[in-house]
């Protein structure tokens, strides 16, 4: 794991409370409150359809909240969208630059829309920063997924925003490109940018200063990873050996077990009742199955949260 990022200056870049968005009869975001400190990287997690994109769109003025209020960089998200747009870089989930323009033309377009004084020079600087100089006259649509994402990020930061909103920026990108991307994010945060990034990847979540987890539009937990793991109070065992599929089915509804999840060759079994978990572990451990007590991972906690929410919803 990477070293914990340094603590930035105080003040909040995002401060919203009670955000609610209803589409038809479906409440997509439900009374969501969130604070992101300036210079922090805030991870935004949750399953598909949990309302991450809708929340991000409300933050940058693309959607009007049905209820709730808040400020983005000190500007009211309901009335000062124009100011917010000038200072926020929003990277959409899908590639949203012009496929039939070259890389340079796309960057120059963005530079002009934001009213930069020397758009050509700004685009050139961005090209060099992104390492895309040699491909400047290639059509954006011809780039591979990793390069597209790099270009999109470059276009977002070109006008010099104070806040970046990145909606699943690394979806469908190979591991090396993902790693480079996150190095860039940390580099930007060190320069003082605030970043809100939604993701499905746990390793990415672990590179954020703080994370927020939402499910069905509701914020379930937020804070640092250590805080979240600690407050979940899960006692976790890592089971290896044979017959894990059968064990998984058996334990799924066993009393005292709150979470069962397969991780590669191992099965993670967790419960909030430490004594009960210990008993289960002792009764199951055998020559073909080893039960090792281990610290709960972030993913264990999220699976537990989802399971719990699912059960309580029924």
């Amino acid at each position: 794991m990477t070293a914990a990022p340094e603590t930035p200056a105080s003040g909040n870049a995002i401060e919203v409370s009670g955000l609610t968005k209803v589409f038809g009869t479906r409440t997509v975001v439900d009374n969501l409150s969130l604070r992101v400190r300036r210079g922090h990287i805030q991870g935004f997690l949750g399953p598909n359809g949990s309302g991450k994109t809708t929340t991000i769109r409300m933050l940058c003025g693309l959607l009007t909240p049905d209820a709730g209020e808040g400020r983005c960089l000190g500007y009211d998200i309901r009335t000062e969208q124009a100011e917010i747009k000038r200072r926020v870089g929003y990277m959409t989930q899908g590639f949203s630059l012009y496929r039939d323009l070259t890389i340079r033309e796309n960057l120059e377009f963005v530079a002009r829309i934001y009213g930069l004084e020397a758009p050509e020079a700004a685009a050139q600087a961005a090209l060099e920063r992104l390492g895309l100089g040699a491909r400047a006259s290639q059509l954006a649509g011809e780039l591979s997924g990793g390069w597209k994402q790099r270009l999109a990020l470059g276009a977002c930061i070109l006008p010099g925003p104070s806040l970046l909103l990145l909606d699943e920026p690394t979806a469908g990108v190979d591991p090396k490109a993902r790693r480079d991307f996150w190095d860039e994010i940390h580099h930007l945060a060190n320069e003082g940018l605030t970043v809100l990034v939604s993701t499905h990847y746990m390793d990415e979540a672990e590179r954020c200063h703080e994370i927020a987890y939402i499910l069905e539009g509701k914020l379930l937990v937020s804070g640092t990873i250590d805080d979240i793991v600690a407050s979940a109070g899960l006692t976790t065992y890592v089971v290896t050996g044979e017959g894990l599929d059968a064990l998984s089915s058996e334990l799924r509804h066993a009393t005292g077990v709150d979470m069962v999840a397969r991780f590669g060759a191992a099965l993670h079994v967790g419960g909030r009742d430490a004594a009960a978990m210990k008993a289960i572990a002792q009764s199951h451990a055998s020559a073909t199955q080893s039960w090792a007590h281990d610290k709960a991972t972030l993913e264990d906690v999220f699976i537990d949260l989802m399971t719990r929410n699912h059960r309580s919803g029924q």
Partner: peptide, 13 residues
Amino acid sequence: ERGTMEALLAMPV
């Protein structure tokens, strides 16, 4: 349809 509108709307234009 090409998805460029979302980015365009997020810009100050």
